[in-house]
Simulated assay, not measured.
Amino acid sequence: MHPGVAWPRLILDDDRVVGFLMAFFDIDFAGDGTGTDIRSGLWRLNISAEEQGRGYGRFAVQAVADEIRRRGGTRLTACWHPGSDGPEAFYLGLGFRLTGEMSGDQCVGELELTSDT
């Protein structure tokens, strides 16, 4: 679907897989071909249920933020399903803000990247 922009990564603790992320870089978020809304961020972040709350998700988001910064970007976009049983509190706790947009049935959030995020 987006060859050359996907960044799949396993999240490991020593040799044990604890999660997976799929990031993207420089895609036309609007999908209209105009190139007026180019974004980078997270398509997917999955941490094993028994490993949640141990810092792996925070580590993964930081790794994506670092890579976006390395490529010259200044914001990280993520989408998630709304609701109390979803990851919204996690993302908001990391400093993401809701944009008011929806991507399908998912909320869109952004994290402005500074030297300390």
Rank of each mutant, 00 (worst) to 15 (best):
M1T: 11
A6K: 01
A6Q: 06
P8Y: 02
R9E: 15
R9T: 08
I11Y: 03
L12D: 03
L12R: 14
L12M: 12
D13K: 14
R16Y: 08
R16N: 09
V17K: 13
V18I: 08
G19Y: 00
G19T: 01
F20E: 10
L21Y: 03
M22P: 00
M22L: 14
M22F: 01
F24I: 04
F25G: 01
D26I: 00
D26S: 06
D28C: 02
F29N: 02
A30L: 15
A30M: 15
A30K: 05
A30E: 13
A30R: 11
D32Q: 06
G33D: 02
G35N: 06
G35Y: 05
T36M: 00
T36K: 01
D37I: 02
I38A: 05
S40E: 02
S40Q: 02
G41C: 06
L42P: 04
L42H: 03
L42E: 03
R44K: 13
R44Y: 08
L45G: 00
N46A: 13
N46H: 13
N46G: 11
I47T: 01
S48P: 00
A49R: 11
E50N: 14
E51L: 08
Q52S: 10
Q52N: 10
Q52A: 09
Q52W: 05
Q52E: 09
G57R: 05
G57Y: 04
R58P: 00
R58Y: 04
F59P: 03
A60E: 03
A60Y: 04
A60R: 06
V61H: 01
Q62N: 13
E67N: 07
R69D: 07
R70Y: 04
R71C: 02
G73W: 04
G73H: 02
R75P: 09
R75I: 11
L76N: 02
T77C: 12
T77K: 08
A78D: 06
A78Q: 06
C79E: 12
W80A: 10
H81T: 15
H81P: 05
H81Q: 12
P82S: 03
S84P: 10
S84A: 13
D85N: 14
G86Y: 07
G86E: 13
P87G: 09
P87D: 08
P87T: 08
E88F: 06
A89I: 07
A89T: 08
F90R: 12
Y91W: 10
G93F: 08
L94Y: 04
L94K: 07
F96P: 02
T99W: 01
T99G: 03
E101W: 10
S103L: 14
S103M: 07
S103Y: 11
G104P: 07
D105I: 12
C107I: 04
V108T: 10
V108E: 11
E112H: 14
T114D: 13
D116G: 02
T117M: 05
